[in-house]
Amino acid sequence: MAIVSVKDVHKIYPLGKTEVLAVNGVSFDITAGDFISIAGPSGSGKSTILNMIGCIDTPTSGTVEIDGTLTSGMKDDDITRLRHRVVGFIFQSFNLVPVLNVYENIEFPMLLDKSTRGTKSERKEWIDYLVGEVGLDKWRDHKPNELSGGQRQRVAIARALVTKPQIVLADEPTANLDSVTGEAIIELMKKVNQDMGTTFIFSTHDQTIVDIADHVIRLKDGLIIKNERIG
């Protein structure tokens, strides 16, 4: 069953007096539970596609459906609610809230909507589990600036999973990490994918991710040059 359906999507950005065609008629489906890699060189359009799947950008033409909902034409509050319910984000630069500690950063998305808030004890139980899963038990009261890059990305993974989203989007998640840490992070995400059935969609240059993905989409100049399901 397709959790993401992209149909004939074009994206044009204005650049001064000219226009840049970032995505030039792309169509594909992503099945729930996939560990999918969108790969390609810089400027190939992978981040643009990731942004549109993450409902933080809209196509110039074509359609994007997330969990059966067409994202075009939605009001800001509605699309924010959809994003909060269905999508979790892992960013290249971790993007943690600097003034919150590890526990508070992970808790933060839960507090943004009634549907995920629950009781304080329910939240604590779930966050404690996630903190344990990402191996940060001893660091829960530390602020982001007191953590290493790998630790920060682990916090970001826990934060992305805390609202139990169906999809986690990861934009170059290992780009700012050394190779050992990067591999550990990928293993952690693969484990979550297998244990929780969460769909992971990566935009990446990292061959390690491409190697373990079960669905690879390769882009060049805004076009799909390869759409391959593995195994």
């Binding site: 993450g54 933080i56 800001d76 509050d77 924010t80 609610r81 994003r83 909060h84 979790g88 984000f89 960013f91 630069s93 993007n95 809230v97 600097p98 933060f108 998305p109 943004l112 909507d113 934060r159 992305a160 609202t163």
Partner: peptide, 16 residues
């Protein structure tokens, strides 16, 4: 800007 953008991306509405 980045921090506020991140909050918006992970589900904070404009009211927040």
């Amino acid at each position: 800007i980045g921090e506020i953008g991140t909050m918006r991306a992970i589900g904070a509405r404009k009211g927040f």
